[in-house]
Amino acid sequence: MEPILLIVCVLAGGVLASLGVHLLPVGGAPAAMGTATGVATGTVMLMLGAAMCGLFTAASVATFSGCILIVSLSGAVGSWLMMGVTMLMANLLYVFGTGIVPVSGRVDVDPITGESQKEYKTPQCDGHGVPNVSYISGMIGALLGGFGGAIMYFALLNYANFEPTMAGVAAMGIFVSNAIIAAYNIGGTIEGFQDPKFKRLPKALLTCGVISLLCGVLVWVVADLGGLGGVM
């Protein structure tokens, strides 16, 4: 039972990481100049930061709780907070520092609030800042990504009987590999679920599924051969 649970949890973590990356508003280098929507950094840095925060909270909660749902949700909340603060601070800098309006470059009307976007977009630009729809999308992405990282951590800690540090580092290693493959799929920048690039999602899910399945099997082999017990 437990090897299967372990592999399923690692698979779920990898797929959720990939899904989370597709929902984040990542602007990359153009966003650093305020000429594209999103936070001005790469996917890897955003998702790694979010996952690390999630792993910290999940690891703290895992010291006194053995419930998979509580640990995973605490990881989700950790990365949620990190992404929320990051996007808020980025928006403050964009609005009050650069003097631009947060506006989406991909859609004419915000699909959630119904606000018009097109008039506020500077010509020749891909949008600016983090508009409402991207903010909400980013929060959902961080929630899913953090949940994925934490569920992986929990599985490595309890089903594979890894040491806490080893479980954290191994979860981070598998998580970033999947996040990077997902980042290659979106080609570096994405606005959120309203972006046309979001339709490429199934391809990344397939690749990340294969990679995390292999990683899950390898982790099970480590736990089995390393004599960590409980998995035999």
Binding site: T43, A170, I174, I180, A183, G187, L218, V219, V222
Partner: peptide
């Protein structure tokens, strides 16, 4: 790569950790 050079270095070490454990 579209995501900057660092991504592939991080990918290498992500694989590296799993590989070292194996």
């Amino acid at each position: 790569l579209g995501t900057g050079v660092p991504s592939i270095g991080v990918l290498a070490m992500g694989y590296g950790i799993v590989g070292a454990l194996v």
